[in-house]
Amino acid sequence: MILPRLDILKGALRRDAGADRVVPPAGFTVRLTLFTAAAMAFLAVFALALSLAAGRLADTWGEDLARASTIRISAPPGQRDSQTTAALRVLAQTPGVASARALTPDEQRALLEPWFGPGLPLEGLPVPQLIEVVEGGDGFDADGLRLRLQAEVPAAVLDDHTRWRRPLVVAAGRLRLLGWVSLGLIVAATGAMVTLAANAALAANAQVIAVLRLVGATDGYIASAFVRRFTVRTLTGAAIGAALAVVALLLLPGAQEAGGFLTGLRFEGWGWLVPLLLPPLSALVAYLATEAAARRVLEDLA
């Protein structure tokens, strides 16, 4: 079973002008394969981008946010500075705190900007002072810190992000999984589509197969003529689809301009090379699907 497969693979890889011409060139299956391969590759690029972006998000929420906490100072304007200073002093004495700093008015304004718009007059609003706390080493004892702040800085409230970070990390992880599942389904659908198209082409060309057999063609030769046709078509379609998807991703608004998860739906660094893998992967799927279809149809027509 392996030797005929190798013959077909060699035949599919070898450019044989004669073999290329024995299968009638036109037909519905040509456009069907090309279009579907392009569409599938386009969707696959987005599924990959989604997976990788979700992965980055999960890492960010899981790692960076896990090591950051916030202290909110909700004190009357006259006491806010003294309470902030007291809280920073407590933090400086707390083991496991790598650094702590009060956010500047500009930073606080930037945080509120998505909701209130630019140029917010922060001075006239009862906005609490925020202190950013970065953990170091094994982290700090959150319960102990809360008790101490309660005693020494009554206006301070510690938020270690645990409440909202955990479900977000889980959601990001599920989104990443969903991306990979989508990619798997796209690959399977590509295989199914190529199988259907190859079956249709082989059935429609039963007369061609009969003529080739009459003149002494082996099953390997006949199969490789069809396999090569479908593999090349799928490779071409997938390359077009992947290229269009990459262009579409590049045209998405930059993450720095608007922020948010959706604008981060793109590749980063080596990730831009991942779409290059899709056309050969699609061609491999097409090769395997057509080879199996050809083997089955040639057996039936024997």
Partner: peptide, 28 residues
């Protein structure tokens, strides 16, 4: 089937309906 194909190369067959590949010119 492959060995039958090899044997068939030693036998020339002419069918009543000829059986050509209609998309290829006669010489091909």
């Amino acid at each position: 089937r492959d060995r039958v194909a090899y044997a068939r190369r030693r036998i020339g067959v002419v069918h009543q309906d000829c059986q050509f590949l209609d998309h290829l010119p006669v010489i091909e």
